[in-house]
Design a binder for these strands. Structure first.
Lengths: 135, 135
DNA sequence: CTGTATCCTTGTTGATACTG
DNA sequence: CAGTATCAACAAGGATACAG
């Protein structure tokens, strides 16, 4: 997977309905973006579209604060800043992988349940083999 | 662990700072509460203190909608409602266990990084072995 | 007992514009 | 390029009261 692919986190991506979240809304995306090496601020903005610079900065600061990433400023012009995963941050990759595996296996079941739930709406039947029905 | 222990989710519990969340704020607690068998509405309220009935109902409905739990109403007086994990809901227990294992292993590191970050505040030094320093 | 109904506070996200 | 500042919008969560 290309961490610079603009469609890496397309709205249709399962992560939209995933019941698991690492940190806030954007953290996991950023972690995955940095998997293959350091990235610059503007490089991260590409796949993580929708995140304004403000939100991106907020999230990056929080990750830095928690020791997940490092922030390195190079005294060049134009300025260059690189973000890189720490060993601690890399441990999150494994966790994300586990979550993805869960999604691959169980998300279809979840979505089916959700659809079935909407379908009955307020009509008869109960989820369980219930002895009594909820009017 | 006793799923009816009022202090099961004490504020000092690591889950307060955990960067991983299953669903919303209360879902994971509820899932764990139901691990050992069906529970009634008021039984769930005990360990999940802080959740008002409104929020608890919301969360339970969402979990039911997604096929994680079943809701069974018994036509008794006083009314009795039991919530129970589905097989799908039980798969979340494994996921939660993985997250807990991550926390046991890495949360101290995270907290240390956080403390170190606060300590420097805006003083010298950089997180990375940075060649240049951020003024 | 098991919820609903209202109202309100707060935190989070987003849009837009501007700076070193 | 890499942010910061400011304001607006929204959704989640909580307090309180009440109903079937």
């Amino acid at each position: 997977m290309d961490p610079l692919d603009p469609d890496m986190f397309h709205p249709a991506c399962p992560s939209s309905v995933m019941p698991i979240r690492i940190g806030d809304k954007w953290s996991a995306m950023i972690i995955v973006c940095l998997e293959q090496g350091p990235r610059r601020f503007s490089e991260i903005r590409v796949p993580v579209h929708g995140a304004t610079p403000k939100v991106l900065t907020q999230t990056l600061r929080a990750l830095e604060r928690d020791g997940m990433i490092t922030r390195t400023v190079y005294a060049e012009v134009p300025p260059r800043v690189e973000y890189e995963l720490t060993p601690l941050g890399r441990t999150l990759l494994e966790l994300i992988a586990v979550c993805r595996a869960w999604a691959d296996e169980h998300l279809p079941t979840l979505l089916a349940a959700r659809e079935a739930y909407e379908d009955r709406g307020s009509t008869p039947g109960s989820t369980a083999p219930a002895p009594f029905v909820d009017p």
